[in-house]
Structures are given as C-alpha cells and as structure tokens.
Amino acid sequence: METVSEENMVTNAVNNILGLNPMGVFYEAGDSIDGIEWNNSLLPICPNMIGGILLFSQALPEEADYIYAASSNLPVAYASNNVNSTANLARGSMNLTESKALENGYKFVWEFTPSQGNGTIAAVALTSAQGGTNGSGSQVGDASTFLQLKSIRLDDLTQAKQMVLFEAVEVDFENNLLYSIIYQDTGVRIRKVQIPIFSWG
C-alpha cells in the first residue's frame, strides 16, 4: 500500500459559516422546522462542520476563497462522519474507532472497500458531514440530491415590513442598515431601517 503525505491548506469555508448568516436566513441556532439545526448538524465543528471528505479527479486551486469546486470537477468519491449503509459505491465510511479528538486537533480516518470510490484521485478536500453524504448528488438517492438548509417565508410579516424588503436598494452590512426607495404621491420616499442582518439564529 502506498502512503501519500502532503501539506494542507485551510480555506475560509468555516469562517464564512460562522460569520455569515444574514438575518438568520441560512440556519437557526435551535430547532428547525424544515432545515439544518445549527446545534446538532453543524456543531461541534469536528466531526460535523468538517466531518466529511471529497476526492477529486482534477487538482484544486490552493486559494483560501476557493470553496466550491467547478461543476467540471465533481467528486469521484466522498464520505461522511458515519458508516455508509447505502448501495452508493462512490461513498465510503468513516472509521468510528480510529477517528477521534486529539490533544492538539482531530484525527479523521475514512475507509473505502475495493468496490467503492474507484477512479483517479488528484485532490482531496474536507467538507461538512452533509457534504460527504451527497453534497454533489447521490448515485442512488435521487430524492436527496440537494440538501435543503432552510426555507424562508415572508407571509408572517406585516405587509408594511414586506414592502420595506421589496423596496430595498442598498444594505450597509457593517452598520446593519437597510435603505429603501419608493415613489409616493409626487415625490420619492427614502427609508433607513436598522435591522439585525448578521446573527446566530
């Protein structure tokens, strides 16, 4: 068996997940009706937020902001933070005995049987546990090709609040300010509204 060792680089993916959640549209801190539950699905970071692996047939650019691979370079194999009990031959399994927290980090061990994950491997990348399940589509799970993070509904807002969002023309993310413009009578009405754009839930 050949062992290949390379230096790793870390992208901004985890920083973006932890720091970019405008108005809580991507995930909720507690229970979620139809999306991802932050506390159970993304935390702790290991082995949830970076609990999966993707194997690519083409090299990946080593850039911190390169988070999503091109559609022309889809993973040939992948694995999540659990044992694969499906018939999907592109998906491997995590070794739950050898994968564990260390004093100075975390150790991940994934395994592929001789019939799983076959192909040319030119690059390896960490992903979330969900991404390692079927982040780019499943060969056997047509009904779960895409992972829904959360659905957004505005019908519980008053019509006045909905109109402020529909009329928005600019957002000041640093100061949590939204600006909207609308024609009113013979003039123009400009609104400046302070809203909690970035939050944890």
Rank of each mutant, 00 (worst) to 15 (best):
T97E: 11
A29S: 14
Q194Y: 11
K150S: 05
G51Y: 00
I152F: 06
F146H: 07
V164L: 14
Q162T: 08
K107N: 10
T145A: 08
A168W: 11
V10F: 11
N134S: 14
S80I: 02
A90G: 13
S85Q: 13
A59S: 15
A90K: 10
A123M: 01
N134T: 09
T113L: 15
E62W: 04
A101Q: 13
P61H: 05
S144Q: 13
K107L: 13
V76W: 10
S85F: 07
A129Q: 08
S57L: 02
F198C: 05
N175G: 04
Q194T: 10
E62Q: 15
I195S: 03
L89Q: 09
N104K: 14
S72Y: 08
V109H: 06
Q116I: 04
F146E: 12
L177E: 14
A70K: 09
A79D: 00
S5H: 08
A125D: 02
L54Y: 10
L60Y: 08
N118E: 11
T145L: 01
L154M: 12
I152P: 00
V4F: 12
L60P: 02
S41P: 02
T120H: 09
E7W: 07
Y78G: 00
F108S: 10
G137Y: 02
F166Q: 13
A79Q: 00
V188T: 15
E174T: 08
W38T: 01
Q184E: 09
Q148N: 13
A129W: 13
N118P: 01
M9Y: 11
R91S: 14
N21G: 01
F112M: 03
A168T: 08
D65E: 08
L43K: 04
Y183N: 13
V193E: 13
G187P: 05
F26I: 00
D31W: 14
E167N: 14
Q194F: 03
F146N: 12
G24K: 07
S71H: 14
I33P: 02
V14T: 05
G137T: 05
L60I: 07
A143C: 04
N104F: 07
K150G: 07
I45T: 03
I67R: 01
G24S: 04
N12Q: 07
E170R: 15
G131Y: 02
L18K: 03
D156N: 15
A87P: 04
F146W: 07
Y183W: 12
A125S: 12
N88W: 05
V140K: 00
L154F: 09
M49Y: 05
K100D: 11
F108A: 06
V109L: 09
T97K: 10
D31P: 06
S128V: 00
G35M: 02
T133N: 15
V193Q: 12
S5Y: 09
I45W: 06
W38Y: 09
F26W: 05
A143T: 11
E62C: 05
R189K: 15
N21K: 03
L18P: 02
A122K: 14
N84A: 06
V14M: 06
A160G: 09
A29T: 14
